[in-house]
C-alpha cells in the first residue's frame, strides 16, 4: 500500500535531509563583504530591481550570524589576511561566493604588486561568478547555484559515513 494514497493532499512527504536543506537554503544570510567595483553591483542586486531578498538572502553586517560570504571585488594582500580572519569567525556550515574576475583569479589586476590573485588562495570557494563586474542577474544565478548545492547536502548519515558525506 502506498503511503501517498492514504494521507490528505495537504501533507507533503519528504526526507528529513531535504527538509533541513530546504529551510537552510531559503535563508542564506550573506555577509556584506564588498571590496571594490563589484560591491556596487552587489548593492544593486539587493536593490529594488533584482531584489535578492526574495530568495531569502539578506545582508548582514557581521560574520557571526552569516552563512555566506560574498567576496565581491579585488582582494589586496593587505585585505587578504583580514578576509581569512572574517571567514574563520563565521559559524559552520559556511559558504563562499567569489564574485567577479578579481576575486576569482586577480582579473585585470594580475599585473599589480599589491593584489592577491584570487580569493581561493585564502579561503575555500563554493561558487565563482565571472564578470567584471558581474551583472545582478549573474550574482542571483550564483546564489541559486549555491542553493542547489545546499539542497544536495546530506546530514543524517551513519557516523562512519559522515566524513564521506561532507566531502
Amino acid at each position: 500500500m502506498s503511503l501517498i494514497n492514504t494521507v490528505p493532499e495537504t501533507v507533503l512527504t519528504t526526507k528529513i535531509d531535504d527538509l533541513l536543506n530546504w529551510t537552510r537554503k531559503s535563508s542564506v544570510w550573506y555577509m556584506l563583504f564588498g571590496l571594490a567595483c563589484c560591491a556596487i553591483e552587489m548593492m544593486q542586486t539587493g536593490g529594488p530591481r533584482s531584489d535578492l531578498d526574495r530568495f531569502g538572502a539578506v545582508p548582514r553586517a557581521t560574520p557571526r550570524v552569516s552563512d555566506l560570504i560574498i567576496v565581491s571585488g579585488t582582494l589586496t594582500l593587505k585585505m587578504a589576511l583580514r578576509t581569512k580572519l572574517l571567514y574563520e569567525q563565521m559559524p559552520d556550515p559556511k559558504y563562499a561566493i567569489s564574485m567577479g574576475s578579481c576575486s576569482n583569479c586577480g582579473g585585470l589586476f594580475q599585473l599589480a604588486y599589491s593584489v592577491c590573485d584570487g580569493v581561493d588562495k585564502v579561503i575555500p570557494v563554493d561558487v565563482y561568478v565571472p564578470g567584471c563586474p558581474p551583472r545582478p542577474e549573474a550574482l542571483t544565478e550564483g546564489l541559486l547555484k549555491l542553493q542547489d548545492r545546499i539542497q544536495q547536502e546530506r546530514w543524517l548519515v551513519r557516523k562512519g559515513d559522515a566524513a564521506q558525506a561532507v566531502a
Binding site: 571594490a36 593587505k78 585585505m79 583580514r82 589586476f109 599585473l111 604588486y113 599589491s114 593584489v115
Partner: peptide, 21 residues
C-alpha cells in the same frame, strides 16, 4: 590602503590605450 590596486604602476606596463579600462 586596503584597496590599493597599484593602478599607477600598471599604467607603466599596459600602454596608453590599454590603460583606459
Amino acid at each position: 590602503g586596503y584597496l590599493h590596486r597599484s593602478i599607477e604602476k600598471i599604467s607603466e606596463k599596459v600602454g596608453y590605450h590599454g590603460f583606459m579600462p
